[in-house]
Amino acid sequence: MSPEKMVTMANQIATFFKSQPGTDQSDRIAAHLSDFWDPRMRAQLQSYVSEGGKGLDALVLEAAQKI
């Protein structure tokens, strides 16, 4: 999918978990990504992150290390 679309989708997930109480937001984002994103989508995200991850929420960058 287009990088813009992927960034939007990932940031939407981050926005939700950011609003939740607790301190484990990036873990919960990572868990959500592992549970619902097919491996090629996660791979695309990880490769995008390794290229700098422009536009991604900081929590997504953190979560990408955990998936």
Partner: peptide, 18 residues
């Protein structure tokens, strides 16, 4: 053991050629 593609993801992946 890995989740598969949802309908919109299938269409995205199709456009990407996978």
């Amino acid at each position: 053991p890995e989740p598969g593609l949802r309908i919109p993801n299938m269409l995205d992946a199709a456009v990407d050629g996978t």
